[in-house]
Design a protein around this nucleic acid. Structure first.
Lengths: 335, 335
DNA sequence: CATGGTTTCTACAACGTTGTAAGCAACGTT
DNA sequence: AACGTTGCTTACAACGTTGTAGAAACCATG
């Protein structure tokens, strides 16, 4: 049922290599030969065996995208853009779910899928620079927070500036007791550190003293964690008049907790997020946020990988910065 | 830098095949031989070349999961479960985004990735039974609505019964003017047809006349479409006291539109969805819904595929039904 | 018609792996 | 002592493809 070059060759009365040449568009093939071969290909419904081709060529045409969790909307949206950008280069994307743990991420980085993929676009949570130091094999592009000058190409937005901008947006509304949700002390918390830095910088800009009690940790950044952190803040008695959540899912959880506490958003408490996920455009109220240009991030990552594959693998790693937009919505409307 | 069986064999002073045997856990290898080989493997950091293995075995260890869109939360959550279930069998999952169009889905089904994947788990939107008739190659499991007794294994929940159950939940609250959002006249709308059937059946059960004006179409089932459909219903003057949305994203859009119209949920209008996506547990108000057992669906699909690969490929297709739960939340609380 | 250069095609080897069959020890049984 | 059995290991071929090198056919030129 499944045919090989050899079958086509026999049917067309030529050598195996000639069929291969036709399949690969080699120019020096007589038109009538080409026609006979193409006819045979069609009749047998021949399709190349990719494993064999890959074995021979040392390329697979498959790249992997590794993200912590697919059902975090930000990563799902990012994945869509990466798939689209890669398709334009004829690549297939293998999406890998790491779970976000350091050990699992190390396994991915060290290339468990080696020999199956040509390259890797990697959005790590927990991985450190040392983990990456040992890697020699597959070309890799990192997304998200800088793993302090790691050995790989890297695409990110300016987290500190973005966090500073949205916090400034809150101070600009006249809010003074601005809480932050999502801080992390673990080494995994690179994003958290950068966004916290932006937050404190913006407070300083506005002449507001930093109050540790207004900063709530969140071990992971799911809705439930945002709700829990918000409840903890409210219970602690520090009456915030605004909250900057380090991502949108945290913010959606916080909205929920505020609702349960009978506080009005934005009247009593203004809420801001980060990532611009689809949900935030339809929540009640709609969510003010930082909108990273995900489409651009994906495209840059794919291009970096393409350059790495075709060009100099030993070239020094590139650091690219993608744009973002401050996107105010109902959750931070002025009073 | 990258080593082969041969390199390991030379270093350990054994034949290539013995190294292969060690790698594959063959039992008849003397402990000291095994130790020497494993040492050599570790020293060289050897990893098998999957292309070569695949070529030899005729299996790739990769299955594909094809879904319309990754950033529809239901599919993202489903994908996570499929990845988990497949990992237990040592499979890697290649996630493919079809976009939901009939032509693209046909390309996926006819196996553009042939020779790269062992099997396919496919959640089609637009595909018809005829499109599937021609397929001969890769084993396939269909998810979601039945493509009327297609030629492939199939896993789904009982859509009609589930839709009937949640509509009955609304009538049980004493609601009488129950709208439906998400109907589709296109052939793609298999889900829509089944859920509409459940809705009408439940109305009949409760002795409520079917009113066409209460049924709003939605070309696709995104949040924006739900909001638009809800607005259209409100503008048309048919004052509903409840809405059954054919999925959760539609329902979240409807919640938003009701909020903008200053109607209270559930007091003025009760809202129910379908799918039990994460967002619905944190929306304001939280969303009553039908919760399909996604974990079970994924597991069944993977098991069906495994049976197909190991067993009789010509066996008649199986139809499996996964359980669901009616999950009432705030959006349909009694008055 | 010899010369040299294209064009067209082919045979062969190689990519790295594993299944098959067979060889060689070592052992226990008769 | 001869025999079969079992445990361990190996040589070889094959999976389907493409790169290399070269043969054969063709063409244009002097």
């Amino acid at each position: 049922m499944r045919h090989r070059l050899k079958d086509v060759a026999e049917r067309a009365g030529v050598s195996v290599k000639t069929v291969s040449n036709v399949v690969n568009g080699y120019v020096h093939v007589r038109p009538d030969t080409r026609a006979r071969v193409e006819e045979a290909i069609a009749e047998l419904n021949y399709r190349p065996n990719l494993s064999a081709r890959n074995l021979r060529k040392g390329r697979t045409g498959v790249i992997a995208l590794a993200v912590p969790e697919l059902d975090i909307p930000y990563f799902a949206e990012l994945a869509r853009h990466v798939v689209t950008a890669a398709a334009e280069l004829g690549w297939t994307v293998l999406i890998d779910q790491t779970g976000g743990g350091r050990e699992q991420e190390r396994v991915v980085a060290s290339g468990i899928t080696e020999h199956l993929i040509d390259g890797l676009i990697f959005s790590p949570l927990a991985l450190t620079a040392e983990d990456l130091a040992g890697l020699d094999g597959t070309p890799m592009v990192l997304l998200g927070e800088r793993v302090d000058h790691g050995p790989a190409d890297h695409v990110a937005i300016d987290n500190v500036a973005a966090a500073r901008a949205i916090t400034a947006h809150l101070t600009g509304l006249g809010r003074r007791r601005i809480a932050a949700i999502g801080s992390q002390r673990t080494p995994e918390g690179a994003s958290a550190r950068l966004r916290l830095a932006g937050y404190t910088a913006a407070l300083a800009d506005a002449g507001i003293a930093y109050d540790e009690r207004l900063v709530a940790p969140a071990p992971v950044w799911h809705r439930a964690d945002g709700a829990a952190a918000m409840r903890a803040l409210l219970d602690s008695g520090v009456r915030p008049d605004a909250v900057f959540c380090f991502n949108d899912t945290l913010a959606l959880g916080a909205l929920r907790a505020l609702h349960e506490a009978d506080l009005r958003v934005p009247d009593d408490v203004a809420v801001a997020g980060f990532d611009d996920i689809e949900d935030g455009r339809f929540s009640v109220p709609t969510l003010s946020t930082i909108a990273p240009d995900k489409e651009r991030i994906a495209r840059l990552a794919v291009e970096l990988l393409a350059n790495r594959l075709d060009g100099d693998r030993a070239a020094p790693p590139k650091e690219l910065t993608a744009p973002y937009r401050l996107t105010p919505r109902e959750s931070t409307l002025g009073r």
